[in-house]
Nucleic acid binder design. Structure first.
Length: 374
RNA sequence: CGGGAGAUGGCGGAGUGGUCAAUCGCAACCGACUGUAAAUCGGUAAAAUCGGAGGUUCAAAUCCUUCUCUCCCGA
């Protein structure tokens, strides 16, 4: 096994790798051609959104998710666990959205029907799509949930992982006959919130089940008390190193939802191979751009790596005729001024979102190259 | 010319006798964003004595008179 790359039917993934999120089947505001031009080599998409909005049976009949997207590079599918978790978090009090050991039960907002997502059905959906890297249905929990809640989530999470793995084996008859690259790889998600012992328990239980990829799950979001506010970046970094150390080096390690460029650099340092986050794309739409050091406002550092940040909507850039980043050759930097991009984004013009997204993804691509050079 | 409606902060627009030196939204400025409820969310600042004049009242942006202007309908 070569830890520098992952073999898939749709090409090899060079590690470490950053994969932008194509949540509803699209990297928001750009085309896959734009993504390719920005250096994107692999993407993440979410099974739940595809299942609910298009239907994986349809995708299967159509010829698979790669054909449907017009993207023939690797695709990692998320299980839907996080999406349901997110749904439950934001509809607290709605007794129709809940999790039991059977699976995730929730109201499909598209048709009002009760929907049950199980470890088995999530796996089936991902096979229907023809994913390259799959994720077992997991049971996320916020870092600041009660210990009892987190413990129960870890228990269910392991039960589900076991069931998902069995389903995966059932659907992969040639599994024992061929090697990596001939069948999709399967990842499970380590949970446990902000408790080291629970993380260790979760990791150990999942390691017994022998997955190809081990994911760090449950980066807390949208909570009044998140890890960030409870403690400084130190804890965030510490637990990612701690969990990475629990996973043998012959396994691929995927830090879900990470993160800021400097956090990715840190995580690579402590052993993580795969990353995905919404930050470069969402921030682009909000006018938050990543640039080389010396080109912007605040400087962010990790060891020898550093970069600046620009909040393009600020008055400061009103008359700025320079490119976003003078050292960047992306479409945005080679065609428009900061002043013009500022104008486009301030009036919510899709063309502005597109250029900003192209720039940020180009930055992330370069950043991953810089990390490899370290 | 007749009939009707209206005039409130940069803009839109609440408010029809006291609790209105005036709600709210937009625009402005600043922040946040981490397996996307996110072209979203939060904060800050600033700005109107409520078209002009007169009157009623203890009290009016709110009622009355009149003037100015705008819009709609009909000649």
């Amino acid at each position: 096994m070569n830890k520098n790359e992952i073999k898939t039917k749709h090409g090899n993934i060079n590690l470490p790798a950053f994969m932008p999120d194509a949540t509803y089947g699209s990297i928001k505001s750009i085309s896959f051609k734009d993504a390719t031009d920005s250096g994107v080599k692999e993407i993440v998409t979410t099974t739940m959104h595809i299942e609910q909005n298009i239907g994986s049976e349809f995708i299967k009949d159509f010829g698979g998710i790669h054909k449907f997207f017009g993207w023939n590079r690797p695709i990692l599918t998320d299980s839907g666990g996080w999406q349901v978790f997110s749904l439950i978090q934001r509809t607290k009090g709605n007794s129709k959205n809940f999790i039991t050991e059977a699976g995730c039960s929730f109201i499909d907002s598209n048709n009002g029907q009760q929907f049950l997502l199980t470890p088995e059905s999530s796996m089936q959906i991902q096979f229907n799509l023809g994913s390259d890297l799959m994720t077992v249905l997991d049971d996320p929990i916020l870092g600041d949930a009660s210990f009892a809640e987190r413990k129960e989530c870890v228990r269910i999470n392991t039960v589900w992982a076991k069931r998902a793995k069995q389903k995966y084996i059932d659907l992969t008859p040639t599994l024992s006959l061929k090697g990596e690259g001939d069948h999709p790889l399967l990842g499970s998600v380590i949970q446990g919130g902000n408790d080291y012992e629970l993380r260790k328990q979760s990791a150990n239980e999942l390691l017994e089940l022998d997955f190809d990829i081990y994911n760090f799950g449950g980066l807390p979001l949208h909570t009044p008390v998140s890890w960030k506010s409870e403690s400084e970046e130190g804890f965030f970094h510490d637990i990612l190193k701690y969990v990475s150390d629990l996973i043998p080096d012959n396994k691929y390690k995927y830090a879900m939802g990470v993160g800021q460029p400097t956090d990715i650099a840190y995580c690579v340092d402590v052993g993580w191979d795969l990353f995905d986050t919404v930050l470069p794309t969402r921030n682009a739409r909000h006018g938050y751009l990543y640039v080389s050091e010396g080109q912007g406002e605040d400087t962010k550092r990790y060891k020898k790596l550093s970069h600046d940040v620009i909040r393009i909507k600020k008055e400061l850039y009103e008359k700025d005729d320079r490119p976003i980043d003078e050292t960047c050759s992306c479409e945005a930097c080679s065609t428009v001024s900061r002043a013009y991009l500022r104008h486009l984004i301030r009036i919510n013009e899709p063309a502005g979102f597109r250029l900003a997204t192209i720039h940020n993804l180009t930055f992330y691509s370069k950043w991953m190259e810089d990390i490899k050079q370290q």
